[in-house]
Amino acid sequence: MGNVTNGMTEEKIWKKVKQREKIMSRSTLLSNLQMSEYQNELQKEHQKALYWETKASGEEKIRFTNLRNEIEIQQMLLVKPKQEAYKAIANRLAPKQTVVKNTIMAFIFGGIICTIGQIINNLFLQGGLAVKEAATSTSVIMISLSAFLTGLGYYDELGKIAGAGTIVPITGFANSIVSSAMEFKREGYIYGVGARIFTVAGPVIVYGTSVSIVIGLIYYFIK
């Protein structure tokens, strides 16, 4: 002990921290004046604790670190009620998402894309392909269509209207691959196209493959 500077001691600060804990647990909205008073108080104590911490060692140092952490938590908690009150105002004034329109559009565009897929699939089946080959060939065609629409600059226009309707189908997966690759062409073919091509596709493959391995394992051991 004996860390007395500007009349502040460790015990006094701990006492203040405890006092404030009660006020903060109520999380009532403080006036601006009260708020800045608390902020100043916390700042003073924080600097002190930090300074003491640099001078101390061993167990004493750990004590000061704890004190500083407590103060930092209170600094954060202090502004929370004000932030929440503000968010409520901002949320109330925010323009409403056009959920109904978006949902209908997603349904229609998603439906159309899947119907196109079904038509292509049927054509392949008629052409004599087996069910699995027909399905794979269909996704190849869908991916190609999406890739070229993206290259020509139409897929993002569709996406603006269709939302999830153009993201969820495999065409959206292809769009995310091709658009990332295109976008970073100017950064070179290695670190631009080659690396960025996986920005969205990477996570999809990572999690898809991992889950498939888990499922395979479960199947392997249960069967």
């Binding site: 349904f107 899947c114 999830a164 969820v168």
Partner: peptide, 13 residues
């Protein structure tokens, strides 16, 4: 195909 595909996309939206 239209209905199911549309519905799956609708959930995403």
């Amino acid at each position: 195909a239209f209905i199911l595909g549309g519905f799956i996309c609708l959930i995403g939206q």
